[in-house]
């Protein structure tokens, strides 16, 4: 059968999500952010909540998230996305509210907001992109940077005596009564992406059912910051990041 005969709308099995617009994304080639954006667009559309979803954009690489997904967005100050999400959800309980944050935003400057929002059990979803580096500002050390990992502010590798240990913030959030779902996913293969999508959907459903805060951590890559190709960085992530940040459901109640 000719290829042109296959390319018909009724045979389509996969394409760009409807809620994702045509703006060219500013992310570097191979960045995990793009895949997570696609998953959010798909889940929100599948749930029929496109008109009722409010995203809270962070400061960091994903600061322009509002340019790419056609839902309502609020831009928060650095690290304050869970606080803004709290306000948005409390004032609009019928809306689905999520914050989208990187590790520099959520685990460094926004630690207090994150922990207190989770401890209050706000009915929001926190999408946490953990790539162990500050990508936007040029690859500086983040709280989540692995021991021995080289960044522009620890060029000889992270040293626990000088810089402390990597912060496993999702494991801290598991201890809080307010969280209902804490899970760690990756988006490096099609199978992992399908699994991550299920967890994302579960988190969004929890928020609408008033069960508490859902934290979906994505262990991600930063090909530019790590100075590797996208494929190499996926392999590096599985070899080095995943042993430190084990995948799977950490809490589900």
């Amino acid at each position: 059968m000719d290829t042109l005969e296959i390319i018909k709308p009724e045979n389509k099995v996969y394409g760009k999500p409807r809620l994702m617009n045509d703006n060219p994304m500013h992310y570097c080639p191979g960045c995990s952010h793009g895949v997570v954006h696609k998953l959010i667009a798909e889940v929100v559309d599948d749930m029929g909540m496109a008109e009722k979803t409010i995203g809270i954009a962070p400061v960091g690489c994903a600061v322009f998230a509002y340019n790419y997904i056609d839902i309502d967005w609020i831009e928060a100050a650095h690290g304050r996305a869970p606080a803004v999400a709290t306000a948005a959800k409390r004032l609009n309980p019928d809306k689905m509210v999520f914050s989208y944050q990187g590790d520099g935003d959520l685990a460094a400057i926004g630690t207090a907001e994150t922990i207190h929002a989770c401890n209050r059990g706000e009915n929001i979803v926190i999408v946490f992109i953990n790539n162990a580096i500050y990508g936007m500002t040029g690859g500086q050390m983040a709280p989540t940077t692995l021991l021995g990992m080289k960044t522009s502010t620890c060029p000889y590798g992270r040293n626990e005596h000088l810089n402390g240990y990597p912060l496993k913030i999702s494991d801290l959030l598991v201890q809080l009564e307010g969280t209902c779902l804490v899970t760690r996913e990756t988006v490096h293969t099609a199978a992992a992406i399908k699994k991550a999508k299920k967890m994302l959907r579960k988190g969004f459903e929890n928020s609408m059912n008033g069960k508490g805060t859902s934290v979906i951590e994505f262990v991600s890559t930063c090909a530019s910051g790590w100075k590797m190709t996208p494929d190499q960085s996926n392999k590096w992530m599985m070899e080095n990041m995943v042993p430190m940040y084990p995948l799977g459901i950490l809490k589900d109640k």
Binding site: M1, I7, V13, K16, M25, C31, H188
Partner: peptide
């Protein structure tokens, strides 16, 4: 190699920029 394509859509899933549309019969 368009003849080899099995329409598994793995390429579409992993594409960060949503450039790929997959069809299958």
């Amino acid at each position: 190699n368009s003849d080899e394509c099995i329409g598994c859509a793995n390429c579409g899933y992993v594409c960060p920029d949503g450039c790929i549309t997959v069809y299958k019969v």
